[in-house]
Design a protein around this nucleic acid. Structure first.
Lengths: 187, 187
DNA sequence: CACCGATATTCCTGTTAGGAATAGGTGGAT
DNA sequence: ATCCACCTATTCCTAACAGGAATATCGGTG
């Protein structure tokens, strides 16, 4: 028996896109993708282009985003914005529902986990490369944090940026610690 | 022009399953799923049953796992094990390739990010619930770490367990810090 | 021996990821 | 002015992944 899909609730990514629209107002699918790459990427996902468009279409069908179509030149430009209904639904989701424990897809740790197949040198190399990436990530986040300034409109994104900086600094410390353990475990 | 798929390399999850087989030897799809739920889940994914079986079938077709079929009673039991070719391919992957930066899907942070829609109280509630979940996770990992003991065969999994304990303890500290920031930001 | 829970496999559907193809617009160099 | 490179914008296609339901056997307990 089909559970009558009809109006399945948005996925978390759907809610996240609604949230971006609530922060920034009307924008194109492309613009939304750019924004997601600068924000959601750090704590959720960087949705694929195709994913953004298909999700917007689903949200539009559900009446959660409004679409305006303009013709600029020989070209059809669509802008999306949060509808009133969308805002209500988004707030309801934020205020309810049980929150999933974070999911981590951590290839560095996977390679450490399988260290018995390579010996400790390879995980050490991987950790070294990871250290560089982490420093880059921290710089990125510091730049973002700086741009957000003290504008109260962006106080929550600012907290998120600070959370990220802290997280990655702690990852650096973990890299050191695991590195020491690997060196000691060396035959 | 098609890039001649023919023999597409395994996905990271595919390699992870090969790695589990290398740690534990022959096992059923079901057993592999159980094992993944006790290991991979913490730093990669908990693959769905269907995903484990479809992945095993793909790996078998690619000659990376061997399948033995026994008839126990009226029942067909399949066991999977890492083939020699599979071990070579897995080691080659571990020794090469550029390592992706970790991906984090963190609903707690997403809700913090959208705090402008709810005000600070709701993120504070969410953080409280998260604190409980974190303590549970830490206990789980401590139990696993304990079971792994000092057996050198499991020294890398042990390092991973220790990494996880550290990570979640640091998350607890971040929860405290964000909590303070939220209380201060309260109007 | 009837039942329950763990083991084991298969199927089906929907969602997400990722890449490539297409095309108009904009700004700079020649 | 025109060509090119890059940015904006949308669409399409395929594979990976998630999740649940259906099925069936086995092992033990009351």
């Amino acid at each position: 028996m089909l559970p009558m899909p009809g109006q399945a609730p948005p996925s978390v990514t759907g809610y996240a896109l609604l949230g971006l629209l609530s922060l920034r107002g009307e924008m194109s699918g492309y613009g939304l993708k750019q924004l997601a790459d600068r924000t959601l990427r750090f704590f959720w996902v960087a949705p694929a282009m195709s994913h953004v468009y298909s999700e917007l279409e689903r949200l539009r069908t559900a009446g959660l985003v409004a679409q305006t179509v303009a013709n600029r030149g020989g070209r059809r430009l669509r802008r999306y914005s949060l509808s009133e209904r969308g805002e209500r639904v988004l707030k309801a989701w934020l205020s309810a529902g049980q929150v999933e424990f974070p999911v981590l897809k951590h290839e560095v740790v996977l390679r450490l986990f399988l260290g018995h197949l390579t010996g400790p040198d390879r995980p050490l190399q991987v950790l070294d490369a990871y250290r560089l990436q982490l420093n880059g990530r921290i710089e990125e986040l510091r730049a973002i944090r700086g741009r957000l300034g003290t504008d109260p409109h962006f106080q929550y994104p600012a907290m998120v940026a600070e959370w990220g900086i802290r997280l990655y600094q702690e990852e650096l410390a973990s890299v050191e610690q695991v590195g020491s353990a690997l060196v000691e475990a060396d035959p």
